[in-house]
Design a protein around this nucleic acid. Structure first.
Lengths: 215, 215
DNA sequence: GTCTATAGCAGGATAGAC
DNA sequence: GTCTATCCTGCTATAGAC
């Protein structure tokens, strides 16, 4: 028996395997048979535990993706706490590190971003939950952190565009590893990730319309 | 009969319909039946004209996606020609406008970016072609345009990271319209697209490590 | 080139034994 | 809770009439 089977319930294995496969191939490309084979359980287990394939997907998203997002947010909070101030420089660095190096393994991170990209291009019921419970609060929190450091004339939309631009870079450099690797000519090793964080911080920081004394 | 049927061959209708559906739903989620129904032709037409479903997809990508990319690149060239200089400000503005407002309709643009996002998350044979024939040349062209305006110490990797960052924003604001709309609280109308281009130009321009006399 | 008919298979879901 | 066996639907692909 595979080590996956030790000390885990069938339900947990199903959720874990489903996450990996759905992230890699997309909902429609994965069959229930494939999932149950990989989870070393019976075909009927999905229907027994979750009712049907779609409900398995939704449970997976709620129980695994959302908790991962929570871990990333916690990591951001810790990073920021270590900075002792909440200047834009500290905020962006804490954010970029939480997302690019962060608490997830490389594989977890890749899956995490693949799943959210899939939800963005073809939303399911999970998407509404993610936007309302994770993205909106995060972006509004960031907006409030940046707000006092931006020029007075900057309205909420422009502040959010700045936040979204930072997010877009992080998202892109995480999910588009393949083309990025091909274009820059080498793999995503640790030194490169450090340079990436540095680049994102520098690029974003200069790009934001900051007051002069708030660097 | 639908107006789609006038003056177009079955082959052309198949390619057009296939592009829309593959972009909207993804390769596995679209059946040949769905395509042939939407194209008002017989089920067997796909196999007659393209051999099988996969080859239809590849032909669609080559004949429709690549030519769209070509139109965008041409638009970028025209925009830049109107600027009379090739300063980073002109380059970024030409690029952002070509991609966000550009020669494509809103629907075409959405489809175009959805397709490339799908190729990035789950590459097929089309991906290699796109990277080699479209992305690499574009990014290297941009890199050469920016290079003389960047500080001497900036190596090729950092220059490319700047280009990729600009690209990431454009990509994100095109394919992630749904969450972006929800977060900023209104739709993607023309005035917003203008503000978006302006934001991207300002954000990217400030973010790049430019020499002082090259704005 | 376009059609119908169908082969052949894989998918989701369930019933019922254990 | 887990298994086997099976139903039924929908898919791709092809053969062959027109």
């Amino acid at each position: 028996m595979s080590p996956d089977n030790k000390g885990t319930t069938t339900r947990e294995r199903l959720l874990k395997v489903a996450e990996t496969l759905f992230a890699q191939k997309g909902y429609d490309a994965v069959s229930v048979r494939e999932i149950t084979n990989a989870a070393h359980c019976n075909l009927a287990a999905v229907n027994y535990h979750f009712g049907n394939k779609k409900t398995l997907y939704l449970h997976m998203f709620r129980e695994r993706w959302m908790s991962r997002a929570q871990r990333i947010r916690a990591c951001f909070g810790e990073n920021l706490a270590h900075c002792a101030d909440t200047s834009p420089a500290s905020v962006i660095k804490s954010l970029a590190e939480a997302l690019i190096k962060g608490p997830l393994t490389d594989e977890e991170r890749l899956r995490h971003f693949q799943l959210i990209i899939r939800e963005m291009t073809k939303p399911t019921e999970a998407f509404e939950i993610v936007v309302e419970e994770t993205m909106k609060p995060s972006f509004e929190g960031l907006e409030q952190l940046f707000r006092p450091c931006l020029h007075e004339g900057i309205d909420e939309e422009r502040t959010l565009l700045n936040v979204l631009s930072i997010f877009s870079m992080v998202l892109y450099f995480n999910f588009a590893r393949l083309p990025v690797s091909k274009i820059i000519g080498h793999a995503y090793d640790e030194p490169f990730k450090d340079r990436l964080v540095q680049h994102i911080v520098q690029f974003s920081l200069s790009g934001m319309p900051l007051k002069e004394n708030t660097l």
